[in-house]
Amino acid sequence: MPLRLEHISYAYRLGRGTFKALDDVCFHVDPGERVAVVGPNGSGKSTLARMAQGLLVPDQGLVSADGVTGTEGLCRRVGVVGQDPEDQIISSSVQDEVAFGIGNLGVPVDEVQRRVDAALATMGLSDMRRRDPAMLSGGERQRVVIAAVLAMRPSYVVLDEPTTMLDTPGRREVLDAVTVLVRVGCGVVHITHDLDDVVPCDRAVVLHSGHIAYEGEPHDLLGDGGRLRELGLGPSRLLVVANHLAAAGMTLPADPTHPRVLAAALADHVRRVGPTCR
């Protein structure tokens, strides 16, 4: 049974007026699926994340995970990883942080120890178990958060821009960790505004002004430069090149954001079709 948001509408009340963050949004994720949610700032991505874990009650519509609704049911089934590791870690050791969530589920102490060991091993943090998270790098801290969430055995994990505050090596670490989450069977929602993150996903959803403006194959989304710009998404320079190549009739590789992969595909294309003018 999937994580399901059905016909969700939500408006924030601001001073005199209201701001409609989500308007009749239908969204679902299956266990083991990896879905990217992209969109410009203010499109409703964070509201979606908070809705999915039961922190916000929709004005209209229903949120359910594995058929269960309500904040308690959702917090057990939907784990969340946010942007700023500083606001998500409260313990003075890595293993205490990972144990924190499980403890809240009423799991007996020896089972807690087992789950902590397993989560640390899965995230490659076993040799850092006694270290103070405040002394770790941004990427390491986010991995601690992911391990803490993983130890609660959620069916779904929503990551709300988990790499925005990290440098390139940190980003890599976190993206690898997300792959691990999918491998162990979680349904993953990766909210991001970096189009590179869309590539490894099974499905891409684009939010714009509280609506779902596009839902489909990441490959199709990335290949269409015009649509990317319409949706307010900023392709990187390489992706713009890929868009031009696609428009000129080339078949894009599965990962058009990787320079060497794209170059190989282009070389192949030119070999078959010969040089062309645009």
Binding site: R237, L238, V240, V241, H244, L245, A248, M250, L266, V270, P275, T276, C277, R278
Partner: peptide
């Protein structure tokens, strides 16, 4: 990107 794409295809 425009220049690069043209150069590549050319």
């Amino acid at each position: 990107p425009d220049e690069v794409a043209s150069w590549a295809l050319g």
